[in-house]
Amino acid sequence: MTHRARWAATSFTSLTALACLIIVAVVAIILGNIAIHGVDRLGLDFLTRSPEHGVTQGGIFPAIFGTVALVILMTIAVIPLGVATAVYMHEYAAKDSPLVWLVRLAIQNLAGVPAIVFGLFGVGFFIQFVGHGIDNILYGGELHYGKPAILWASLTMALLTLPTVVVATEEALRAVPQSYREVAYSLGATRWQMIRKVVLPQAVSGILTGGILAVSRGAGEVAPILFTGAAYLLPHLPTRLSDQFMELGYHVYVLATQSPDVEATKPILYSTVLVLLVLTFALNFTAVMIRSRIRRRLREGR
């Protein structure tokens, strides 16, 4: 090889290797920085008490509570809708239906639409249209639902994560061999019996993965809840669907951008970020574990 060729070879290899190094280093730095500064305030107290002295003391329990409440409500909405949509498209609709193709296209590409657009929809449709409508009909114009509320925030999140659940469920349904369905039919099963007794039990892990990924996104995304229900310091925990709520990601955002004394709130801020990260990672990790267990079982031929 000529000198020039050798030089080109080495630089090509080293440049691409450098790219890998940089990426890994950056991730390590971010995680390390957060872990080091966040561990300070971390403790059972922090997780179970409410903020005191403004936000410089105490804990972030209301934010944790709000995040969990948001995610639970979101899950109640998104799992049935998402699974039903996927089951309908895969098991009930005609295989070459143009409607199904269109819906699948819409769902796959909706996954790339910015979260803030969903937030726009949440404000314009859920709060202004539906919320005010409910107020006019049920409360004679009094303001109950026509304002930011945990109900609207969770519905907005449900729409945001709907594509995730639908895609994961369809993938799980597709992985069930067609021969199982044929056997069930040949023994005299109706379509629903076949789905309930053969397909769904096989697809459960895949559906679970999709659900966990949706939950992880629900816990981490802030843009959709900025105007649909999240609030900074609330005196009470949310008890009704029309209440606002505190949330981990939102808390980080406000603390980081609008706190009057950055130095004083830094420790709490870092610890909150750490809690949020741990939560998201735990969820993602669980989903990845389930998914690799599914893939392993598929390779072994069940």
Binding site: E182, V183, P201
Partner: peptide, 10 residues
């Protein structure tokens, strides 16, 4: 009906 490939349900 018995199919050409054995299909035991899981």
């Amino acid at each position: 009906m018995v199919f050409s490939v054995p299909v035991p349900l899981p």
